[in-house]
Design a protein around this nucleic acid. Structure first.
Lengths: 217, 217
DNA sequence: GTCGGATTACCACTTTGGTGGTACTCCAAA
DNA sequence: TTTGGAGTACCACCAAAGTGGTAATCCGAC
């Protein structure tokens, strides 16, 4: 749990020790970031992610047994709040789309220039979704053919959850929502927790922004 | 600081003891609200508001020495976070507009039916701006002639503050904003505190909603 | 009739957000 | 040259948000 000015903590998940070493050395050259842990497979990676909750996770796609996409899904299942950046050799469209659909916060190619990698990671640490430039056009096409890459289905929400989203989008605090709905604040928190998970959002602020943009106001 | 299920706390500021007594009795009949303090003038009222920080303040306009509008401004000056409902006999347009401009969260007339008053107060406690129905048309006209009733001037914000508003409107946490701007989280909090005061908003969620609606995204 | 989702509640706990204060630097306006 | 706003930082403190778990009720589907 790094505080504001300490460097961004990073977990590497990759089955190639040499590559991990290289990436780690590269990152360590940069004071604003720090590799705090490494894992060579999915199980270990998920475990580490849960215990240390890093700011960023750099995740390889091609791993034995459990592949990267599966690992990504596991991390999301376990509600790891880290930003997850897929880091791989594959510029295959399906992989990119699958990764982003599974909730990746970035997709970087291993053949990037080291310097570009560093700046991309820095950006990722500040909350920006980073995609290797080479994939941009590819992704644009995918978006055209399938407009629902990042669309969450509103239908997975219960009526109560939708109701609470609207109240959040009006800027209301949990306490106020509780009073309005005649339930306890604790219960409101439960609903908020559930809808955050369903919408894959990280805070009520994101919920509010999303709802307003979606016109749910 | 009532918790979710406890009743909404109310402070009465009115120079008529009898009226206070009546209102108090009326409110006490309602389990979801509770009068926690009373004041007969502005000074006392502001002091009480600061110390007990009630959910609602019912404020009379016609008081000796310092009138209600002044009191209202003082309360806003002192950054009292309570919802302030003006409660008066005056259905004068100027008073209504002045009160709302000064930041009132509601404007109710003393000749309301007791039952209507209760429901209005309940609504106010849930964050709704309540206006006596009789004043609705009057207010609509005022809005037509002067579109800036609730408009805050963006120009009072410093460049840094505007920048941070945009980041908040992207759902970012203080920690992430700090990293992006290369300043400490504490400093981000300072800016947030200041812009909340300037915009007369109560939380970053309200800032985000406001900014998105304003197209500052 | 059982199973599971939805709703509610309560608990303890950690993290994030917001307040209040002081204090330093920089820079421009008075 | 002094003054004041803007930006930064640090501090302690309290309030709000979010997590993780258990558990009860209700209701509809299988």
């Amino acid at each position: 749990m790094p505080d504001s000015n300490s460097s961004a903590s990073i977990l590497l998940i990759d089955d190639h020790p040499l590559l991990r070493k290289g990436v780690k050395q590269l990152i360590e050259m940069h004071p604003s970031m720090q590799v705090v842990a490494e894992a060579c497979n999915a199980i270990e990676g998920v475990k580490l992610a849960q215990t240390i909750d890093p700011d960023l996770i750099l995740l390889d796609l091609n791993m034995p047994n459990i592949n990267g996409i599966e690992t990504l899904k596991m991390l999301r299942e376990e509600e790891v709040s880290s930003r997850i950046i897929v880091f791989t050799v594959s510029d295959n469209e399906e992989d990119v789309v699958a990764a982003l659909k599974a909730g990746a916060d970035g997709y970087l190619l291993k053949d990037m220039e080291p310097e570009d990698l560093l700046t991309s990671l820095e950006q990722a640490a500040t909350g920006t979704v980073v995609i290797s430039p080479r994939l941009a056009t590819l992704l644009a096409q995918a978006l055209q053919s399938n407009k629902s890459v990042d669309k969450v289905d509103l239908s997975s929400l219960t009526p109560r959850e939708k109701q609470i989203i609207k109240l959040i989008a009006n800027g209301m605090a949990n306490k106020v929502i509780a009073r309005k709905l005649s339930i306890t604040e604790g219960t409101v928190k439960v609903h908020v927790k559930h809808l955050l998970k369903k919408l894959r959002l990280r805070s009520r602020v994101e919920v509010a922004v999303w709802a307003v943009q979606e016109g749910l106001n």
